[in-house]
Design a protein around this nucleic acid. Structure first.
Length: 678
RNA sequence: GCGCGUGUAGCUCAGUUGGAUAGAGCGACCGCCUCCUAAGCGGUAGGCCGCAGGUUCGAAUCCUGCCACGCGCGCCA
């Protein structure tokens, strides 16, 4: 891993700048380390000379030369090779290839971070009233990858999945069951055990929506049902409980197909029953973060003042021009209602209470109940509003919440609400938590024109390049349908290549491939980009796809296996013997391609760091793809088994082995496995 | 109206806190399976980086203005 080496390089140069020019290390700009466009120029490039040109009143090239001189032989230690001024003022570094490669491959440079601060990541949060669709897959894939990255960097991560079981969407299904299907609780008990119960609800939800649209008066059924849910009145509440429990289990099964698991299911109903809001309201009132609006349009409401987007500076500039505006309406615009004049709490209110709980700032806690064991063996808990006996043979309930950092993975349409959470934390005097309260925001998944047409929505008029997914209308690609199509496509491909494999083995491989295809597809786009989901594009296994990455890893493994079979060469002994293996095959010009591969493979930690820092997980995907491309190039140009020279063959094998392990880790961070064959 | 986001090759997108010749996939065209798996590799064609100014040694990247598109902004959930 290259990060420690970069740190070392920065230290060396900082020291040189301090001794040579007397610069204060504190005031120096953060030193960017780049990669020159081609290896002949060097392995790393530092541009600090350009930035210092002005203050030092010297040409960048001269500065670069002086830094190189000042660092001198100190650079040769620990894998840093020689420094060389290049071009207009770049300071390029030529690494000691053999020393670096040996270090990376033996894992001695591995940073072993201590158990970091506890981080809560909330993701998935699908309304428990219908099947999951591709939009939910983007959320879960991003959220789960983020978790894996955070753990990779040493954090303790707790994954929460919020279940909004009290909203109208659930009420609508209850209405549908009763009014459209004529079914009650007993019928539902049979229904939920039918396969694809979530698909049944998907269709029912669309039908209810249509049914409402035909006659507005039918909405009274929704209101009545919603009231019964709020008051926990059976049998309505019992129907909703059974319904949401089963749908949640459907969602969990879907996500499990992608290797996505959770630690805690947080049920909104419990937040309400345990009166989290009442507690949060006390806190908000006593701190003055909310106040009762005495008159005007919002008379009788408890409101929270809203800051303008960019700090408080915006409000000050308004002072000049605002005089002409009617002061009343202008003020109202910057107030967010938290409690309505009828005394009920708004959506934000519940969110604030939950967010406070995540940080351990609420003072109240949930009860917990055992929810089940997930495929990997990981336990899953759910919140509860009553104490329940822990089933035998289950682990003790862990201490949930009390995080020092919180990531909420929610699409960009929720930005406004998420911003309000941060403002509430600030208003309550928790600036540190406000700072650590991160909205991982991303754009939605829509449907491409052609895919929408394939689904039978030909009427999607207008000139939009995409069609928005709508659960309410039943318009969308269901997650399980996509996975099914992916899997059967992969199965055909596997069968065509490996007739000898038993069908269950083919099936297993196909599943692994399909998972990678879906997950990579959801990760490879920048978060700020709307994905116009196209089924044909997603179904492709060629080019920039998950299977391409897996294929490269499989090829690498194959080489290592054959090396063992034909030459009796074990990877571990191979790596151990590198210390005494002649390095010509790596250090001379013929080793450039091999070195490029090794250097690129070493960058995983740097990329993971960047992905988390910028919350741009596509960088991880792009890096892994680039690495796979590089390996495939190497694969075609540099045979390993057929190489005559023993030392050269060993170095190539070592490079392949290093690539394989780094690629496997990169795929692992994206929740993808490497199949045994492809 | 205000806020956020997006605008780069025919299509879908990268472009690392401003850096070296703007890259990749798909599609098109031309090649490569006696050789570690062709889910692969090599090559060709294809670019006023939305427009106009500005900042600087250097701008697709930063600033200002404009244009286009998307999303958000309710005592709804």
């Amino acid at each position: 891993m290259i990060l420690p080496l970069q740190t070392l390089l920065r230290e060396r140069i900082t020291l040189a700048l301090s001794t040579r020019y007397g610069l204060d290390p504190e005031s120096m700009p953060t030193m960017a380390i780049e990669y020159p466009p081609n290896r002949r120029l060097g392995d790393l490039a530092v541009t600090v000379a350009f930035e210092l040109a002005r203050t030092l009143r010297r040409a960048p090239r001269v500065i670069a030369g002086e830094i190189a001189e000042a660092v001198g032989d100190a650079g040769h230690l620990d894998g840093l090779g020689r420094l060389e001024p290049t071009g207009a003022g770049y300071l390029n570094v030529f690494l000691d290839r053999a020393a670096c490669a040996r270090g990376w491959m033996s894992g001695t440079t591995e940073a072993n971070p201590a158990r970091g601060p506890k981080t809560v990541v909330e993701h998935t949060a699908i309304n428990p009233n219908k099947a999951a669709h591709v939009g939910h897959l983007r959320n879960a894939a991003l959220g789960d990858t983020l978790c894996r990255l955070l753990r990779f960097r040493g954090a303790e991560v707790e994954v929460q999945n919020y279940i909004d079981d009290t909203g109208v969407q659930v009420a609508d299904i209850v209405v549908g069951l009763r009014k459209l299907e004529g079914k009650g609780l007993d019928d539902l008990r049979v229904l939920v055990d039918q396969p694809r119960f979530d698909y049944y609800c998907w269709n029912l939800y669309a039908r209810v929506t249509e049914w409402y649209d035909q006659d507005d008066s039918r909405l009274t059924h929704r209101r009545a049902t919603l009231q019964e849910l709020e008051h926990d009145t059976d049998p309505t509440a019992a129907i909703a409980r059974l319904l949401t429990d089963r749908i949640v289990r459907c969602h969990l099964n879907t996500m499990a197909r992608l290797g996505i698991e959770y630690d805690l299911l947080s049920w909104e109903g419990d937040i309400i029953r345990l009166q989290f809001w009442a507690r949060a309201f006390e806190i908000l009132k006593s701190s003055g973060a909310v106040f009762l609006q005495p008159d005007g349009r919002l008379a009788g409401c408890w409101v929270m003042p809203i800051e303008d987007a960019d700090t408080g500076a915006g409000a000050a500039t308004d002072n000049n021009g605002a005089a002409t505006e009617p002061a009343d309406s202008d003020d109202d615009a910057r107030l967010k209602v938290i409690v309505r004049s009828n005394g009920t709490v708004t959506y934000v209110g519940k969110d604030i209470a939950y967010q406070l709980w995540k940080f351990g700032l609420l003072g109240n806690d949930f009860r917990y109940r055992w929810f089940g064991t997930q495929p990997s063996g990981r336990p899953l808990w759910a919140t509860s509003s009553v104490d329940t006996a822990r089933p035998p043979d289950t682990p003790p309930t862990p201490p949930f919440g009390r995080a020092s950092a919180v990531y909420n993975v929610i699409d960009t349409r929720q930005s406004y609400l998420q911003d309000l959470l941060v403002q509430a934390l600030n208003a309550l005097g928790h600036p540190r938590e406000a700072e650590q309260s991160v909205h991982f925001s991303y754009e939605m998944v829509a449907l491409s024109r052609s895919t929408a047409r394939t689904l039978g929505y030909a009427d999607a008029e207008g000139d939009k390049p995409f069609v928005e997914v709508s659960g309410r209308k039943g318009l969308g690609v269901k997650a399980d349908d996509l996975l099914d199509q992916m899997t059967s496509h992969a199965e055909q491909e596997v069968a065509a290549r490996h007739e000898d494999l038993a069908s269950d083995a083919q099936r297993r491989i196909a599943t692994i491939i399909a998972t990678a295809a879906v997950r990579y597809f959801m990760i490879k786009y920048s978060k700020g980009k709307v994905i116009a989901f196209d089924i044909d594009e997603a179904l492709s296994f060629e080019g920039e796809t998950g299977p391409y990455l897996q294929y490269a890893a499989v090829r690498a493994r194959k080489i290592l296996h054959k090396l063992h079979d034909r030459h009796g060469l074990e990877t571990t002994t191979l790596l151990a013997e590198l210390a005494t293996t002649s390095t010509a095959g790596l250090t001379d010009e013929s080793g450039d391609g091999l070195w490029d591969l090794i250097l690129d493979a070493s960058r995983l930690d740097e990329v993971a760091e960047q992905a988390v820092r910028t919350l741009e997980l596509s960088t991880l995907a792009k890096y892994a793809f680039g690495l796979a491309q590089r390996f495939n190039g190497f694969y075609h140009s540099s045979p390993v088994l057929a190489e005559q020279d023993d030392a050269r063959r060993r170095w190539r094998a070592a490079g392949v082995s290093y690539f394989e392990s780094q690629m496997t880790r990169a795929l692992g961070l994206m929740g993808c496995e490497v199949p045994e064959r492809m």
